[in-house]
Amino acid sequence: MASNPAEDIPAQHVAMLATVQRMRLGLLVGNLIEARAARDVLQGLHAAHIALEETALIPKLPASARWSAKVYLAEHAKLSAMLGEWHDILARQPDRLDPPEQRLMLLDASAPLQHLLEHHFEREEKGLLIETRR
């Protein structure tokens, strides 16, 4: 476990956003092998992130917190479900996807995952990380 979770979480956010970008770039160029590999890395990063937060930070969240623990836990569950859906979506695709319309469709479909990650990380940085330091 990390020695200082509040310092490790922002670094995890950066790594996860870079990995979702790697997945999206794979989709953009039609390299589904790369997109799958990035999705798998993202899954591992997400699992480690959840484990750290749910054991070291969320239990310390005060009752007066801006967002309750249920909000963070629900977002973790939603992100986990979305990553599972992306595993299935990418598994159904060929290794190389040439038609630009298909690549664009997948790229567009991946935007909600990126947006939820960004929104969740912002909530953590403005709420969880501050409120568990008090």
Rank of each mutant, 00 (worst) to 15 (best):
A2V: 08
S110K: 08
G26C: 06
I9F: 06
L57W: 06
A38K: 10
S68A: 15
I50S: 05
E131A: 06
R96G: 00
A91W: 02
M105Y: 01
I58F: 06
H115G: 12
T19Q: 05
S110C: 06
Q12H: 12
H119V: 04
P112Y: 10
A77I: 02
L79C: 04
L32P: 11
K70M: 12
L61G: 04
L52V: 13
E131Q: 07
D88R: 10
S110G: 04
V20Y: 13
L27K: 02
Q43V: 01
H87T: 11
V29W: 02
P10H: 04
A15E: 08
W67N: 03
L45E: 07
A35R: 05
Q114M: 14
V29C: 01
A77K: 14
V41Q: 12
G44A: 08
S80H: 09
Q114D: 09
L25Q: 11
V14G: 00
E85A: 12
R24I: 00
R24T: 00
R133L: 15
K60E: 09
D98V: 10
L129A: 12
H119M: 08
T132V: 15
K60M: 12
H87A: 12
G30H: 11
L27Y: 03
D40W: 14
A15R: 10
G26M: 13
P62R: 08
E34H: 07
L113M: 05
F121Y: 08
E75V: 06
A63L: 12
A111K: 01
L128V: 14
L79Y: 07
A69T: 09
A91V: 11
A2W: 06
W67I: 15
T132Y: 00
T55Q: 12
G30S: 10
W86N: 01
A6M: 07
E124Q: 12
L61H: 10
I50L: 04
A38M: 06
M16I: 08
R66D: 06
L117T: 07
G44Y: 02
Q102G: 00
L57V: 14
A15D: 09
A74S: 10
A48G: 15
I89C: 08
S68H: 14
A81E: 08
H119T: 11
G127D: 03
E34V: 14
P10I: 13
P59I: 13
L116N: 05
L42D: 10
A111T: 03
K78V: 04
L107M: 13
P112R: 04
W86S: 01
L32V: 01
V71I: 08
G84C: 06
